[in-house]
């Protein structure tokens, strides 16, 4: 099932106009996109940990990264 918050993150990553609108007024931009009140609050709170969790994006989990050291 599609997560609308994740869709919003994708929109901000790929649409400079949407990002500019978000930076000017995050609450209005998120509301216009259709996010519910709880998700709007996450954005207003800049709740990095929770949003990263929703995006399945953990900066300390190496599963997402291609770790390697090479012989020079």
């Amino acid at each position: 099932m599609t997560d609308l918050l994740v869709e919003y993150v994708l929109e901000l990553n790929s649409n400079p106009e949407a990002l500019a609108a978000h930076e000017a007024n995050p609450e209005q931009a998120a509301r216009d996109f259709g996010l519910d009140e709880a998700d709007i609050q996450l954005i207003l709170d800049q709740d990095v940990a929770e949003i990263q969790k929703r995006c399945d994006s953990s900066p300390i989990d190496t599963k997402g990264t291609m770790i390697m050291f090479f012989k020079p």
Binding site: D3, N13, S57, G64, M66
Partner: peptide, 11 residues
């Protein structure tokens, strides 16, 4: 795919 998060996978 080898991408680190759900956002990337969804895209």
């Amino acid at each position: 795919t080898v991408v680190p998060d759900k956002v990337s996978k969804q895209w």
